[in-house]
Simulated assay, not measured.
Amino acid sequence: MDSGLGYLAVVLAVVLFSMTFHEAMHAFASNWLGDDTARQEGRLTLNPIAHIDPLATVLLPLLLAALGAPPFGAAKPVPFNPSRVRYGEFGAALVGLAGPVTNLVLAFLGFVVLALSGFVSNWFGGLLQVFILVNLAFFVFNMIPLPPLDGSRLLYAIAPDNIRQIMVTMEQYGIYLILIIVLLFNAQLGQFMQSAIGSILNLFKVVVGV
């Protein structure tokens, strides 16, 4: 698929779909584990309007796609109270993992369809390739153990109290911290993303047998 307006439109559609499922699964996981904060605030839904952040969900992935980089981004964080979920910090880690793992599963399903369909050279194949790339980019980026990204929930579960306090302070700056990191370390982040996505795709090939 080319890198023109058509490609950007496909990226935006895939981002909205994938990020909606990502955030909704955070909400479903927290609700299932006993915290109804997300449900009370209207986030237990597949309506993308409830989850979109104009900068991180729309502008950031479109800008990265236009530059030829893996189009990753974020959305409005799903609110939940770690002290109300079952299993303490490990329950909170499950809530954090629910979003990126959803993206990983979506990418794998897209890869299976692409591998079995034979439609690699037409528009459907191009759409599937974008779908796989976007979901893997969301998975890799959000698994970075840096607040407020989802991977930080795993670090919360095992980190000592003094490290947790630093992480809580970092999390207060939320989406702005993410944007600053992307701007300052764009080249290094892009190389890391490309390498990680390539490794996961190789694993997919082994699993599917292609």
Rank of each mutant, 00 (worst) to 15 (best):
I49C: 01
L94K: 15
P61Y: 09
E41S: 12
D35S: 07
D2R: 10
A157E: 01
P71H: 07
F138W: 11
V120H: 14
M143N: 04
H51I: 04
V140N: 03
A137L: 06
N142D: 02
F185L: 15
P70C: 13
Q129W: 01
F192G: 15
F21R: 02
S152M: 05
R153L: 00
L154P: 06
N122L: 05
G73K: 00
A187P: 04
E41K: 12
F141L: 06
L62T: 12
A75Q: 01
I178H: 01
L104E: 10
L154E: 01
L146T: 11
F108V: 03
A157P: 02
D161T: 03
I181K: 07
V112H: 06
I49S: 05
L67R: 11
L133T: 09
A107F: 08
N31L: 08
L146R: 03
L127F: 14
V10H: 05
L46V: 15
M170S: 03
I181E: 02
L16E: 04
F108G: 03
V168N: 10
G73W: 01
L177A: 09
G42H: 09
R164E: 00
L114I: 07
D150E: 03
V134R: 05
L12C: 13
L128D: 04
V113W: 11
H51M: 03
H22G: 02
S3I: 12
P79G: 12
Y173G: 10
L177C: 02
Q191I: 05
G68V: 10
N135T: 06
F141Y: 12
A107P: 07
S30K: 14
F90H: 13
L128I: 04
Q188A: 14
F108E: 01
E89P: 03
V95K: 10
G88I: 12
V78C: 10
G151K: 03
E89T: 07
H22L: 03
F131Y: 14
F139S: 13
L5S: 06
V206H: 05
P147W: 00
E41T: 11
V210C: 06
Q165G: 10
L149Q: 03
L203Q: 01
H22Q: 07
S30P: 10
L94P: 14
G42W: 08
G126L: 01
G198S: 05
F139T: 14
A92G: 09
G73M: 00
I175S: 13
N103L: 11
D150C: 04
A159E: 00
V85P: 11
A38N: 09
V120R: 15
L201S: 05
T102N: 08
V78P: 05
L109K: 01
N31Q: 13
F192T: 10
A137T: 07
M19S: 14
G110N: 07
F204N: 02
L67W: 08
G88F: 13
M19F: 15
